[in-house]
């Protein structure tokens, strides 16, 4: 038997090696993709400053954009992007957190059976459909209510609010339902009402999870292109009101990329906008990690 054990041992090992190499190659593809994307976007985005010799400051703080003044000032778009992101998050937060509380604390039966599937369905609706509804419903509504064109930051924020609501709501639900039941029992046994228990105990300990949900929602809002482009008005001027046409990084990118020639200054500046988008999405990841690690150290204390 020992001799049999020793003889030609390699069939299985080769199989194992093949499996390991194949799957590792798949993993490597994923890593390679990320490196390629970052490399391409960064090298293109920096051309504005390295090849075309424009100043970073002029890009970040200038307010006159190509078609209007021939400048490369991206500030209107940066402000526009942040404005729609912050506003939509502000609108969505109470709804999303409320939905989470409702599902976990108020009526788990209705919540899990109806509200949660509803939220999951909302996740699946394509963003162009949100954009279309914004165009057909919200824009006319705004026009009739406040006058003007109806396009603008407020309209875009409302559409984005609905769009990021499901993401934020389902993540908040997870955060709230992961609060240990012991906390709830403790609060109840001390005679707290349900609301006291929710806002003093449950929400406080679910806060990091809820913040993470909000940041991920912001990341989605910041990066959404078509739905915003359809509604925000796409006018590259410094926004002076929530109700006048404005623009975001994504909307200008969507509009402009098809109309510029690769290698021209106009094209390079658009890539610089894409670079800002990329950088911001990395910043959002970083924030999520910071919340996570801060939460961990607190839990350890």
């Amino acid at each position: 038997m020992p001799k049999a054990l020793r003889r030609k041992p390699l069939g299985k090992r080769q199989l194992e090696l093949v499996g390991k190499i194949t799957t590792a190659a798949c993993g490597a593809v994923v890593i390679l993709l990320v490196f390629t994307i970052i490399f391409l976007v960064v090298s293109r985005g920096l051309r504005t400053f390295t090849v075309d010799g424009q100043s970073l400051w002029a890009f970040l703080s200038g307010t006159s954009w190509l078609p209007e003044g021939g400048g490369i000032g991206a500030l209107p778009m940066i402000v526009g992007s942040f404005a729609v992101t912050l506003l939509s998050t502000l609108f969505t937060a109470p709804l999303a957190i409320g939905a989470g509380i409702f599902i976990v604390e108020i009526s788990p039966r209705f919540g899990r059976r109806v509200l949660q599937p509803v939220i999951e369905l909302l996740v699946g609706i394509p963003s162009v459909v949100y954009g279309l509804i914004g165009l057909l419903v919200i824009v006319p509504f705004m026009r009739d209510t406040f006058g003007g064109t109806g396009y603008g930051i407020l309209s875009a924020s409302l559409v984005l609010m609905v769009m990021i609501l499901p993401t934020v709501a389902s993540l908040s639900t997870d955060a709230i339902s992961s609060v240990p039941d012991g906390y709830r029992l403790g609060a109840k046994s001390l005679g707290a009402t349900r609301w006291q228990m929710i806002h003093r105990v449950v929400l406080r300990s679910a806060l990091p999870g809820i913040l993470t949900a909000l940041v991920l929602g912001m990341a989605r809002a910041f990066g959404e292109a078509l739905a915003v482009q359809m509604i925000v008005g796409n006018s590259a001027v410094m926004p002076t009101s929530l109700l006048t046409p404005a623009s975001t990084l994504t909307s200008i990118l969507t509009m402009g990329m098809g109309n510029t020639v690769t290698g021209s200054l106009q094209n390079d500046v658009l890539w610089s906008l894409a670079l800002v988008l990329l950088a911001m999405s990395l910043v959002f990841i970083l924030i999520v990690h910071l919340i996570g690690s801060r939460n961990k150290t607190e839990a350890a204390q």
Binding site: V30, L33, I37, G223, E224, A225, T250, A274, L278, S281
Partner: peptide
């Protein structure tokens, strides 16, 4: 994580 956070326009 990076891939999933990239805006689809990028």
């Amino acid at each position: 994580e990076v891939l999933s956070s990239l805006p689809s326009i990028v």
